[in-house]
Simulated assay, not measured.
Amino acid sequence: MPNLKNTPHFQALIMLFIAMISMQSSGSLAKILFNQFPILTVSVMRLLLGSIILALIFKIWRVDFKAINWKSVASYGIALAGMNALFYMSIARLPLGIAVSFEFIGPLSVALFHARQKFDFIWVGLAILGLILLFPFDQAAQNLDPIGIAFALGAGACWAMYIISGQKPTGISGNHTVCLGMFIGMLCLMPIAIFTGMPLAVFEPSNLIYFITLAILASALPFSLEMIALRSLTPLVFGTLTSLEPAIAALSGFVFLGEQLLWTQWLALSVIIVASIGCTMTTNRAKKYLSDE
């Protein structure tokens, strides 16, 4: 009888779960850092240190810079900058799980736009129902910040742009595109962060260690693990499992920040996850059907 724990598929699943936990835990760490540093400063430091770490991991110096499609890389980096900054501004005003749920509408919309199956209207309806359930209509004390919601939806729109621009040919590998995109995104946000008051204290060793940890949790570790996991997982399995991120974010907010959600909001997260899983499955089925024709 084969040992399931030693199979590449099982190991890839574990790596993917660790990557998702790492990514969503980084949101909790970012919220803690907001108490001491401006939001844009945290965003810039995450992108700066993340790009440096990834540059070392993926050996950016081996890239043929003359072959790079800088227009595609720049659009990717701008989308990444907007996604990162707006998401951080949203979680400063909203519970982590709620912000991720609103943000998740971005990639879900992209998937539904390209899907053409008869079940698509069901997933659209579930996504809309999930968004409605996120609002605590019967709990005035739990009202959601409308500006935070706007930031989260803006982050979702940038996430959609990130997916679309990431599919354009850049002349280099996906790993190097992410690395250069993060650096360009940092360059976009840095002037704004400096203008709004970026303290030099961020470069003090006692503070820098927190930003390095944030960069590892939010970029280096999840990107590296996802790259390995994708070698053994189908797009269907990968997309289905990553649909669990709103729930993981909510759990991270509960464990590390003490954020509590209403039962209707937990139900909303579940509905959005079901919509995302369903969309992933029907989209994958449509692609398989077209490839078989």
Rank of each mutant, 00 (worst) to 15 (best):
3 N>I: 05
4 L>A: 12
4 L>D: 02
9 H>S: 06
21 I>D: 00
21 I>T: 09
21 I>Y: 00
22 S>E: 06
23 M>C: 03
26 S>E: 01
33 L>F: 10
36 Q>C: 01
38 P>N: 04
42 V>R: 06
51 S>T: 01
52 I>D: 02
55 A>L: 08
55 A>M: 10
63 V>R: 01
64 D>E: 06
66 K>C: 00
68 I>M: 07
71 K>N: 11
73 V>C: 07
73 V>M: 06
74 A>W: 08
76 Y>K: 08
76 Y>M: 09
76 Y>S: 09
90 S>D: 14
90 S>I: 14
94 L>D: 03
100 V>F: 05
101 S>G: 09
105 I>S: 08
108 L>P: 05
109 S>T: 09
114 H>Q: 12
115 A>N: 15
116 R>A: 14
116 R>L: 10
116 R>F: 11
120 D>M: 14
121 F>K: 12
122 I>C: 12
125 G>Y: 11
136 P>Y: 13
136 P>W: 13
148 G>C: 09
155 A>E: 02
156 G>N: 07
157 A>S: 12
158 C>V: 06
158 C>M: 14
161 M>A: 15
162 Y>W: 13
164 I>P: 03
165 S>C: 05
170 T>C: 03
171 G>L: 12
172 I>Y: 02
172 I>A: 03
173 S>N: 11
173 S>Y: 07
174 G>Y: 00
178 V>I: 12
179 C>I: 02
181 G>F: 00
182 M>H: 04
185 G>C: 04
190 M>N: 07
191 P>W: 15
197 G>Q: 06
197 G>M: 06
198 M>N: 13
206 S>A: 14
210 Y>D: 10
210 Y>I: 08
213 T>H: 02
218 A>Y: 04
223 F>V: 06
227 M>Q: 13
230 L>D: 08
231 R>K: 15
233 L>M: 07
237 V>E: 09
242 T>I: 15
243 S>G: 13
246 P>K: 04
248 I>H: 05
255 V>L: 14
260 Q>C: 11
262 L>N: 12
265 Q>K: 08
267 L>H: 00
273 I>Q: 02
273 I>R: 01
281 M>S: 07
281 M>W: 10
288 K>W: 01
292 D>T: 14
293 E>S: 11
